[in-house]
């Protein structure tokens, strides 16, 4: 079964890197440049198992996106993973309190992402073996 991920980051380079990492794990990915664009994807009916979310973005930031997703019961199954350079303890607590499941601090390695996905039970079986 293919696992889907929506990669949300205002940096095109970072979207490519995160998408490439996830595709290497067998994911099908789509990308969004900010929170509102990501919400538009979800409203359009493409609801992934995972969203990776940058914090600082124009239009709608990552925390606003997390709050918007958590306000919609239909999107409750979506796993939300912050992938951001915001590494202050208070910010991590805010994101987790808002409903994010995991928090990865940039810079990250592919192994760090894989470990988090394994913890979340979102690593396709052939990769986790």
């Amino acid at each position: 079964m293919t696992v889907r991920a929506l990669v949300i980051d205002d940096s095109r380079a970072m979207r490519r890197i995160v998408s490439g990492t996830l595709e290497g794990f067998g994911y099908e990915t789509r990308q969004a440049g900010h929170g509102q664009e990501a919400l538009d994807v979800l409203h359009g009916g493409w609801v992934p198992e995972l969203c990776t979310i940058d914090w600082n973005m124009p239009v709608m930031d990552g925390l606003q996106f997390v709050n918007a997703v958590r306000a919609n019961p239909a999107w409750r199954p979506v796993t939300l993973m912050m992938v951001t350079s915001e590494s202050e303890h208070g910010q991590i607590v805010r994101a987790l309190a808002a409903g994010a499941h995991e928090y990865v601090i940039k810079p990250f390695t592919a192994d760090a992402i894989r470990d988090k996905l394994a913890l979340l039970g979102l690593l396709p079986q052939e990769v986790s073996l």
Binding site: S11, A13, M14, S85, E86, S87, K106, P107
Partner: peptide
């Protein structure tokens, strides 16, 4: 975009 993202990552960790 790439240079901006490098500044973002370094800046976030300096912060």
């Amino acid at each position: 975009d790439a240079l901006g993202e490098l500044a973002n990552v370094v800046g976030g960790n300096v912060k």
